[in-house]
Computed example of a mutant assay.
Amino acid sequence: MQTHLPIGYKMVEGKIHIDQEKADTVKKIYNEYVNGKSMLAIAKRLKENEIPNANHKTNWTHGAVGKILQNTKYMGDDLHPPLVSKELFDQAQKKRKEKTTQLGRTAQLNSMNNHHAFTNRIFCGECGEPYRKYVEHCGKPHEKVRWKCKRYIFNNKVVCKNLFYSEDEIKTIVTSSINKLLQKQNLLDKPYRKEPLKKDMELKAVESQIKELEEQEQFSSPLLAQLSFKRAELMYRVSRVDDYQFNTQKMKDCLKDVSEPTDFNEELIVQIVKKIIIYKDGKIEAEFINGLKFC
């Protein structure tokens, strides 16, 4: 059983600890960004220096850096020791918001910046790969820009046959999901659906078994290791409630001044849309940053 942790943390005997070497990477990312370095430049530096990411690989992207810069766990919570101060975290959020606002005001219709909102947000529901922008007949009068699954062509063969969408169609899809949310904002007032009693009882039972084995000094028992990982999994699931509340409030703040319905709004998409999943049968699922989904 393995619990996926943000870079900078490690699991030791069922508890989350700071992984100092990777924690230093996280701190440097925050400080570089706040001091004016772009996410793309930071990703380039990490890749060139072969710094491992959370998956122990060195293929850094600006999107991966962005996820680190908005992860609230780095301020610390019941499970995660703090890696950055709240002041530094807030400075990073302020800078991200300023950059997004600037992007929304200055991006031209066909500029590369205008595609930022779609990058790593549109995924294939058939194979799980992200959608990519393909330019067909580049520079010719009949040039077409279409978004296709990354695995549409692999090793010179057609692998994934999921649907294609034009730039305007993608904008319509994403905008319609925003407008649907605007019509049903009352969903943001609903409490997070969880099973606190069941989880609490299960967690207490696991902790009781761990305590009993420790009192018997059975530290090398395979059961103790299994129970430690089980405890970590249960505690980690509970921590998602804090993420839900934080991201729901962020969505409310972003929507409070938005008229209904809205036109294509890149800034808003970047702020609140987590991903759009496209299926071969035409079904499209929009997921927002707090986990709310619309089909």
Rank of each mutant, 00 (worst) to 15 (best):
Asn162Asp: 06
Gly125Val: 06
Leu40Thr: 13
Ile29Tyr: 02
Phe246Cys: 07
Lys37Ile: 12
Met201Ser: 14
Gln183Leu: 15
Asn156Val: 10
Asn53Phe: 06
Phe219Ala: 11
Val241Thr: 08
Glu202Asp: 09
Met11Ala: 14
Phe164Gln: 04
Lys157Thr: 09
Lys252Met: 03
Tyr279Ile: 05
Lys194Ile: 11
Arg151Asp: 15
Ala23Trp: 02
Phe264Thr: 03
Val158Asp: 05
Leu69Tyr: 06
Gln108Cys: 14
Ala23Asp: 02
Cys254Phe: 06
Gln209Asn: 15
Leu224Ser: 01
Glu98His: 09
Asn53Ser: 11
Glu50Gln: 12
Glu195Asp: 12
Glu214Cys: 05
Phe288Arg: 01
Gln2Phe: 12
Ile153Asp: 08
Leu188His: 02
Ile16Lys: 01
Arg146Ile: 14
Ser259Thr: 10
Lys133Val: 09
Lys171Val: 08
Asn49Val: 07
Leu255Pro: 01
Tyr9Ser: 00
Ser221Arg: 00
Met251Lys: 07
Glu169Pro: 12
Asn114Ile: 07
Lys275Arg: 14
Gly128Cys: 06
Leu5Ala: 03
Gly63Phe: 04
Gln216Ala: 14
Phe229Glu: 15
Gln216Met: 13
Lys10Val: 12
Asp77Trp: 02
Asp243Ala: 00
Leu203Pro: 07
Tyr134Val: 05
His4Gln: 14
Glu215Tyr: 08
Asn162Thr: 04
Ile42His: 02
Phe219Ile: 06
Leu40Phe: 14
Glu98Ile: 14
Glu32Leu: 09
Tyr236Ser: 13
His142Lys: 11
Tyr192Arg: 07
Leu40Cys: 05
Gly128Ser: 05
Asn179Asp: 03
Ser111Cys: 05
Asp243Gly: 04
Gly125Pro: 08
His4Gly: 08
Asn247Cys: 04
Ala107Met: 13
Lys293Cys: 11
Leu203Glu: 08
Arg146Phe: 14
Leu103Pro: 12
Gln93Trp: 02
Lys150Met: 08
Gln20Thr: 11
Lys86Val: 08
Glu267Ser: 00
Val241Pro: 06
Ser176Ile: 07
His137Pro: 06
Met201Gly: 09
Cys160Arg: 01
Glu266Lys: 10
Lys190Cys: 00
Glu50Arg: 05
Val258Ile: 15
Ala64Gly: 11
Lys204His: 07
Pro82Thr: 03
Lys157Pro: 10
Ser259Tyr: 09
Lys99Ala: 15
Phe288Ala: 02
Gln102Phe: 10
Met11Thr: 07
Gln20Tyr: 14
Pro6Tyr: 00
Val273Gln: 01
Asp243Ser: 03
Gly128Thr: 11
Leu224Asp: 00
Lys15Phe: 00
Ala92Asp: 05
Arg132Cys: 11
Lys133Asn: 08
Leu213Thr: 01
Gly125Ala: 06
Ser228Ala: 13
Ala117Gln: 03
Gly125Lys: 01
Gln216Ser: 15
Ala64Thr: 06
Ile170Asn: 04
Val258Gln: 12
Phe164Ile: 05
